[in-house]
Design a protein around this nucleic acid. Structure first.
Lengths: 185, 185
DNA sequence: GTGCACATGTAACCTGTTACATGATTGG
DNA sequence: CCAATCATGTAACAGGTTACATGTGCAC
């Protein structure tokens, strides 16, 4: 149940409400583990009843009140135990790859537009990551030296950057291959 | 429901039984879309009752009989329709990345072994992909010229190879970073 | 006769997705 | 007053995981 652990990490980095967690999952940690607010509220409720996290109501001016969650000793222990357990190396789940193989039974060239759309999405994501890296880790505004948490966030972000660059190069290869095969072959 | 489409592609490439599909999902197409035999049998049943695929019993010597599935006109149409629909660019789901960020709240150096285990798994997978590439696409035994289906399988495999190479380099970066942070920092 | 590869399934459970629902407060 | 952002949820369903269950035929 990695969502639980992702939430523990995020709350340890910074306590917050379900809503705030949902927004963090739209950026930051969510780049590597996506979750919607429905999932998050459901799991937060369970984690609280399991005693992993605690909550307190926070009154806010200019905004609705919120319920701020933070990690308790049980939650910290659960995270620690998980960190010391081995996990299975992930298997990728790549729908576009299925489509590309499926193109053999249709018009390969017709997939070019779709692949280009994905290419743009990945180029955008790369630009976004690079901007974040400059802002938080390598730019003049970034703290120096970085603490352990920041170093680790940075190395994960470097993974995202490497992933997007690799993907862009591969999608170019895919587009060239689809074009070469064309509709009449 | 991409499993359905992955099964259609696999059955178009070669008709086969649920068991055979399950083994293909352990290699080949399964590198990009994993599925267990339980899932496959369940979905095959539904696809047959929806008329997408047909089956015939095949008696075998030396082995239990099997039920061979093949794609019907409705299935081909369903695949074609799906190929022309846009899909969302995938979001990655990377449990190890969550662990790495979590290491800030534990001993970073203790994660080194786990990351090395993942590194070995990815190195094995890369070696496996490269052997497959040589066997099926670039070696002296490979057919030349390749047909469209083979070209597309090859470009997908090149994606897998690029992914594993990128991952190995990144995991080296991760290991170096974890070591640099050490237990006492 | 034991283990292995082949072959097909059921059941229970957990996770994830989609749609719906409500309400506060601010700014235009 | 309307849209946007903040804030929290429920319900139904689809998809994936784990455990269990059964049976054939061959090789050692």
């Amino acid at each position: 149940m990695a969502l639980e652990h992702a939430i523990l990490v995020s709350l340890l980095e910074q306590p917050g409400s379900g809503y705030e967690l949902a927004r963090r999952f739209d950026r930051s940690i969510g780049y590597f583990w996506a979750a919607t607010h429905q999932q998050i509220y459901r799991v937060l409720k369970r984690m609280e009843s399991d005693g992993l996290i605690g909550s307190r109501a926070v009154a806010q001016q200019d905004r609705p009140d919120k319920k701020e969650y933070s990690v308790g000793p049980l939650g910290r222990a659960a995270l620690s135990a998980w960190l010391h357990e081995p996990i299975e190396p992930e298997s990728v789940r790549h729908e576009l790859a299925v489509k590309i193989r499926g193109a053999a039974f249709d018009d390969p060239a017709a997939l070019v537009q779709e692949v280009q759309r994905h290419r743009r999405a990945h180029a955008d994501r790369l630009a976004h990551y690079l901007a974040g890296e400059l802002r938080d880790f390598t730019g003049p505004e970034a703290p120096a030296p970085l603490d352990a948490g920041q170093e680790l966030q940075h190395v994960v972000l470097r993974g995202g950057i490497a992933y997007e660059r690799m993907t862009l190069a591969w999608l170019d290869d895919v587009i060239a291959t689809l074009r070469r095969l064309g509709p009449e072959r």
